[in-house]
């Protein structure tokens, strides 16, 4: 039996002094699977991603990432485990503006030996890996040395994707990565992202409120259906 990429069982979470925000009896994501998770704002989406990244710990139940129970790791081991196996793409502004584009892409390899090794194994060096990914994502080579904040939002998102993919993590978590892009750019971006995820065999957890993208994915889930916690009224 292959180990699931993500496996949540009987998960419960509440912020201190607040009612339970998340109550997810079961959830799995298989390796290489592309899942669209629909979650409007306020649905506990950010908290769920925090739990998957090990930044917060569950109050109840388990989070298994690649068969490892995150709650059993120490805080610093969880941090290391996260960066070894997960790449992140956020909504926008998720590049360090004062570094070059290539350096931004290489960041995870600076903090994770495992991802640096994998990048070297695949492309010879971390620098080569970052160049290859940038080229695959349709960014001209001469952009590599530019400051990250000199790029357009669309280009920055592709840089962020390259950063999430470098060193071939098993899981890529994308949190509303397309909301700052226009409709045409969205599909283009997704195609590139899918292609690269397939190339490195990464599973993709794509969280968005934009239903129109859902048909492109293997599977679609809604966080509000998944989550059994009584939801407070939205403001």
């Amino acid at each position: 039996m292959t180990v699931s990429l993500i496996k949540l069982t009987a998960l419960g979470f509440a912020w201190p002094g607040q009612p339970e925000l998340l109550n997810i009896p079961t959830f799995t994501l298989d390796r290489g699977e592309r899942l669209f998770l629909k979650g409007p704002s306020g649905s506990g989406k950010t908290t769920l991603l925090g739990l998957l990244g090990g930044v917060q710990t569950v109050k109840r139940g388990n989070v298994h990432l690649l068969g490892t129970d995150l709650a059993k790791l120490s805080a610093s081991k969880r941090d290391r485990f996260r960066v070894d196996h997960t790449g992140y793409i956020f909504q926008q502004f998720n590049l360090l503006p004062f570094l070059s584009v290539e350096e931004n892409v290489q960041l995870p390899c600076r903090f994770s030996k495992e991802r640096a090794h994998r990048a070297e194994a695949r492309h010879g060096s971390v620098v080569e890996a970052s160049r290859h990914l940038l080229a695959q994502l349709g960014l001209a080579p001469d952009l590599g040395t530019r400051r990250a904040d000199s790029l357009s939002i669309g280009q920055q998102q592709r840089v962020a994707a390259a950063r999430a993919l470098i060193g071939s993590p098993e899981l890529v978590i994308a949190d509303e990565p397309t909301s700052a892009l226009d409709a045409d750019a969205r599909e283009g971006f997704l195609k590139l992202l899918f292609a690269e995820c397939s190339a490195s065999g990464a599973g993709l957890l794509f969280v968005s409120h934009d239903q129109s993208l859902a048909p492109l994915f293997d599977r679609t889930l809604s966080l509000s259906e998944l989550n059994r916690a009584a939801r407070p009224l939205e403001n």
Binding site: G53, V55, S76, D79, R80, R82, V83, D84, Y88, F90, F93, N94, L95, L96, L107, P108, R110, F111, S112, R163
Partner: peptide, 15 residues
């Protein structure tokens, strides 16, 4: 934001 980005690429709080 800078700190959060660093955390997302694997920097630990002591970093």
């Amino acid at each position: 934001r800078e700190m959060a980005i660093l955390r997302s690429v694997g920097a630990r709080p002591w970093h």
